[in-house]
């Protein structure tokens, strides 16, 4: 595997994997609650706003918060972290991901197949579907990159046109994306300002938030290869507001570790990460407690 060089036996890849595996078993109930919860709240906003129980402005603010919480539950599902390899539970992955992504107007199948390619080819300019945002020079560049619309996905399809499994998922997702677009266009005729401020604007803010914290900060100016493609970083924002994406590097090493188990996993894996010279590993606190990842 690329990036696995020689280190002392006590920090061997097998031992690292063994520790990581111990954090990769728990059912991610928090993520399920957040995913299903935010999508349900978002759906409830429509009648509440239309019948005047809350103002459109307040509804829009709540919808934006929902949109910022929408992707991560799907991300866990894309990695099978709800089913944990149990075929009988795979429907949970699919249900949570499809449902939580409604707020962002994202199709699960499209997200899953492109995300798997992101893991396989992180920071590869030709093959990483997230390279456009990860390579942006500023946050404004990230914002511009997220507005490319269908153009980005046309170029991804061109790159992977010979990968049958990828293209099958891609087209399945594309149909769902078109359905979302059609629903939005019907809604905008009936409820124009509600469609703008409850769905279109929150989804845009959500995608920018997602691209900034999940893609740009962890991968910007990083190399390719295991232990080198993602960094530990710090930020002025409390980590619960940026989904603890400072810890995103451990997800790239061991995607099976659930999001809420990452802090404990990093504490256990810190010596391994330092031995492997993971960028920023020496700055990892010994205890990832309530909020030690702030840099003022």
């Amino acid at each position: 595997m690329e990036g696995i060089g020689q280190v002392a036996e006590e920090f061997s890849f097998d031992k690292e994997k063994e520790i990581a595996r111990s954090f990769s078993k728990r059912f991610q109930w928090e993520m399920m609650l957040i995913g299903v919860g935010q999508a349900t709240i978002w759906l409830c906003l429509w009648p509440l706003v239309i019948y005047g129980y809350i103002s459109l402005f307040v509804g829009s603010l709540i919808a934006i918060v929902c949109a910022c919480f929408a992707y991560l539950p799907s991300h866990e599902a894309q990695h099978g972290n709800f089913s944990r390899g149990n075929p009988k539970r795979r429907w949970v992955d699919s249900f949570v991901s499809h449902y939580t992504l409604i707020t962002l107007m994202f199709p699960h199948d499209l997200m899953r197949c492109t995300h798997m390619k992101h893991h396989a080819y992180t920071n590869n300019p030709e093959k990483d579907p997230d390279y456009d945002t990860a390579s942006s020079k500023t946050i404004w560049g990230v914002i511009v990159a997220t507005q490319a619309g269908i153009t980005k996905y046309q170029s991804i399809a061109e790159t992977y046109k010979d990968d049958k499994a990828f293209m099958k998922s891609f087209h399945k997702g594309l149909n769902v994306a078109l359905m979302y677009r059609a629903i939005l266009l019907v809604l905008v005729v009936m409820f124009p300002l509600e469609a703008l401020l409850l769905w279109w604007l929150p989804s845009k803010v959500g995608v920018i938030y997602l691209s900034t914290f999940f893609s740009w900060y962890p991968h910007y100016q990083m190399d390719t290869g295991r232990y080198k493609d993602t960094k530990f970083w710090s930020h002025w924002m409390p980590r619960y507001l940026n989904h603890s994406m400072q810890l995103h590097f451990v997800h790239h090493l061991h995607p099976g570790i659930g999001h809420y188990d990452e802090p404990k996993a990093i504490e256990a894996l810190k010596p391994f990460l330092i031995a492997r010279k993971v960028p920023g590993a020496e700055n990892i606190p010994d205890r990832v407690a309530h909020n030690p990842l702030i840099r003022m």
Binding site: G149, V189, P192, A195, L196
Partner: peptide, 25 residues
């Protein structure tokens, strides 16, 4: 058709409806 013209349709229906709603408002 969708690949080539989706932006035009989106502009006409979505932004047209939004601009019209703001004007009525």
């Amino acid at each position: 058709h969708i690949a080539n013209w989706n932006m035009v349709w989106f502009g006409l229906i979505f932004w047209g409806s939004v601009f019209n709603a703001i004007a009525i408002n």
